[in-house]
Amino acid sequence: MKKISFILNGEKRNAYVEPNDLLVDVLREKLGMHSIKYACGRGDCGACTILLNGKGVRSCIILAIEADGQEILTVEGLSKDKLTSLQESFIDHGSFQCGFCASGMIMSATELLDKNPNPTEEEVKEGLSGNLCRCTGYTPIIDAVLDAKKRDVDKK
């Protein structure tokens, strides 16, 4: 076992891990970050997406030990005080059915909007590619992301 420490949702956290422990398991099982979902386990579906140092990554194909000294953001950290405009927009557009893809979609969209606050529809599709949804047909998700940027402008 090796002790690792990292910043999780703004707080310093420690964990004891084996070299072959996966980040998704440590975050979910040891640290209770249940927003992260686990499906394909091979980087293909995006359900386990988190932000690592601000970048969307698949936590199912990262070793927990690689997170030592890094900064991680999950949905729990996004909405600490209240929902973000993006999350509100997801609710208003009915962008979840079973909801299994939602955390990954929201993390990927958060990264996209950080990088490019004014994306076109094509850019939204590109930004969310690799995040699979078997329920919604994607349209309400794309609409929610496009609308989220408008909400932020309106708020200002």
Partner: peptide
């Protein structure tokens, strides 16, 4: 190549 979430790594 793949998608942003893969290209980031």
């Amino acid at each position: 190549i793949a998608s942003p979430g893969i290209r980031n790594r």
